[in-house]
Simulated assay, not measured.
Amino acid sequence: MQSPRESHARAIKQILRYLKGTTSFGIKYNRSNDMKLVGYSDSSHKVDIDDGRSTTGHVFYLGTSPITWCSQKQTTVALSSCEAEFMAATAAACQAIWLRELLAKVTGLERQKVILRVG
């Protein structure tokens, strides 16, 4: 950083305190025969009243373990909750395709169907 400020030091200290307090947290991954890829997608329409953008979120599980997740503001303003859900589902579908291809390459198995549940 070219010109660090006091606010940067406070942010770093907060991150370090968080990490120190969560060292016992974790996600357990178990190997099983039922390793289906399942994704869940949802959105919240017009959460931010200042810019009118909705929030998108998705999580993907391999078996019973979460492997990837995302929560972010949508790049465009949705005119309805249905449109916001559609944009969220589209983003999740793109992630599902990428994960399906990655898993096929890593495991050497055929591509599997991905279940995507939209909320």
Score class of each variant (00 low, 15 high):
S41P: 03
D51C: 04
L37F: 08
I27K: 01
S32R: 05
G63E: 08
I49P: 07
N33K: 07
Y40T: 03
H58C: 12
T76S: 13
V77W: 10
H58P: 01
I49E: 11
R31K: 15
Y29P: 05
P66H: 03
H45V: 09
G57W: 09
S43V: 10
G57M: 04
P66R: 00
M35R: 01
R53W: 07
R31W: 13
D42A: 12
K36E: 15
K36G: 06
H45D: 13
S43F: 10
K28D: 09
V59F: 04
Q72W: 02
Y61C: 05
S32D: 13
D34E: 14
P66C: 03
Q74E: 09
Y61F: 14
V77F: 04
I27L: 11
S43Q: 10
H45G: 02
S71V: 10
C70N: 09
K36N: 15
R53V: 13
K28C: 14
T64N: 08
T75F: 01
G57R: 05
N30F: 12
I67Q: 00
I67M: 00
D51S: 09
G57Y: 06
N30R: 06
G52T: 05
I67R: 00
Y40G: 06
L37E: 12
N30T: 15
V77M: 12
T76Q: 11
T56Y: 04
F60Q: 02
Y29D: 03
S43C: 12
Y29G: 04
S54P: 07
M35I: 07
D50Y: 11
V47W: 03
T75Q: 13
L37Q: 10
D42P: 07
Y61A: 05
K28P: 00
Q74T: 03
S71Y: 02
R31V: 15
G63S: 03
Q74D: 11
S43A: 15
Y29A: 13
W69G: 07
P66S: 00
R53Y: 11
Y40P: 02
D51I: 07
I49L: 15
D50V: 12
D50H: 08
T56N: 10
I27G: 02
L37R: 08
L62M: 13
W69A: 08
V77D: 10
S54N: 05
K28Y: 12
W69D: 05
Y29T: 04
P66K: 00
I27T: 04
V47C: 08
V77N: 08
K46H: 11
C70F: 07
W69N: 03
M35Q: 12
M35C: 07
Y61K: 01
V38T: 12
G52E: 02
T68G: 00
V38I: 15
S71N: 06
I67G: 01
K28T: 13
R31Q: 14
T76N: 12
S65N: 06
R53A: 10
H45E: 11
S54H: 08
S41K: 02
S54C: 11
V59R: 02
I49A: 12
F60H: 03
N30D: 15
Q72E: 12
Q74V: 08
G52N: 08
